[in-house]
Nucleic acid binder design. Structure first.
Lengths: 224, 224
DNA sequence: ACCTGAACACCGTTCAAGT
DNA sequence: ACCTGAACACCGTTCAAGT
């Protein structure tokens, strides 16, 4: 009763799946993946921990729903672009930016193959790959190559952000530290990585991401 | 004393970082990621849980070391191939197969950006990208596109295997279930994904993976 | 230097009991 | 139908105490 009153006073609707997901996103954004616990969540919502289980199957379901909410928004916003290529780039950038803003989305995306958030991306990419003129027999392999590349970048960005948070450093500090490690590697055994240390320090994730998309798109062209 | 005797009788050396990592790999392979706990591990090793912390910083360190052990072996074995392209394909396949055999490696790889196991893959790929004739200014973007694609596939394969294990189904059952879900999607909103359901059911992960590598390699060629 | 194992501070999840 | 909150069965990690 007291709790319910407090909830009403705050202007929140009674406990619902949507309000749970909304609060989960807030918690994930502010405290990272380790910040989402049923205890913290129920406290924010002014309920008991067990109540959440009436609306949500388990923590995996919750994370997936939170992830899907972000991905759905991002994909819906990414309709700009005149040509199929531009639309693919726009879709890629939309999810890149979404993960930049919500790093935990990248980690969750990697955990839920074939499920809804991933399907949204696949659909957006796949349509445009078809529009590009890629023949039916090559559609799957082409779309899934793009998808896997995007998921790969998503996962790394998520891990970078997660690592930076744990060590309370920002992204630049973190990449600087990695670059330092790389420049200390054995000069002959790790010649390539060593020579990339400088690049790592001042590269632009976003334009590198786009360059990768373009590389794959360039690989499609000759086959058409 | 008793424990030490038992250890000696089993022919094991006294507790060491290597033996801890070895047993961790065994546990991860047989029981998945949730199977690796300090309690299970210390029982297998005939020690107390706390003893492990003398040799290993924490669970993250342990997982990373186990992952690195597998990746190092895989990359060392993948030296075959006459041309740079063949060497890139060989390296890719080596880690694909390693993750097929040890799915948890795919998940861990996604979690440790810039660290040793990832660096091994980057080094192997990057050298060959250089040998391909890619100019210095494009080396980073090209190598990292290939790397991210590989990590993306690695992550998805790991998640597929993990999901199949949790539901005690095999990979085929799992993909069949996903294909069923896809074929029930809305016909207009998810036209592309829906049409891919059949492909999903009988595709070959390994050859799809290789097709993606070839697509990226094909995208490099025009720029040379 | 290395190991023991109890203790601490958490988790996700369940479930009898309430309304 | 929905919620409560104590209880259960775990975790990773620490640390005084041992050898």
């Amino acid at each position: 009763m007291v709790k319910n009153t407090r909830r009403t006073q705050r202007g929140e609707a009674s406990l619902s799946r949507d309000s749970i997901i909304e609060q989960s996103i807030a918690l994930l954004d502010s405290s990272g993946e380790s910040g989402l616990t049923f205890r913290a969540l129920s406290e924010q919502l002014g309920t008991g921990a067990g109540a959440i289980y009436w609306h949500v199957a388990n923590k995996g379901d919750l994370l997936n729903a939170a992830c899907d909410s972000i991905v759905a928004q991002a994909m819906a916003a990414a309709v700009d672009g005149a040509t199929p290529k531009e639309k693919i780039r726009a879709a890629g950038l939309a999810i890149f930016d979404a993960i930049d803003a919500h790093p935990w989305v990248g980690a969750e995306l990697a955990r839920s193959p074939g499920k809804m958030p991933m399907v949204r991306i696949l659909e957006g990419i796949g349509r445009q790959v078809g529009a590009l003129g890629v023949p039916d027999r090559a559609l799957w392999q082409t779309a899934s190559a793009l998808l896997h590349y995007i998921l790969g970048v998503a996962g790394q960005n998520a891990a970078n952000a997660q690592f930076a948070r744990e060590h309370e450093a920002d992204r630049t500090d973190f990449l600087g530290a990695v670059a330092d490690d790389w420049s200390k590697l054995d000069a002959v055994e790790y010649a390539f990585t060593r020579s990339m240390a400088a690049h790592l320090r001042d590269h632009d994730d976003r334009s590198d991401f786009l360059a990768g998309i373009d590389l794959i798109l360039a690989g499609i062209a000759p086959a058409l």
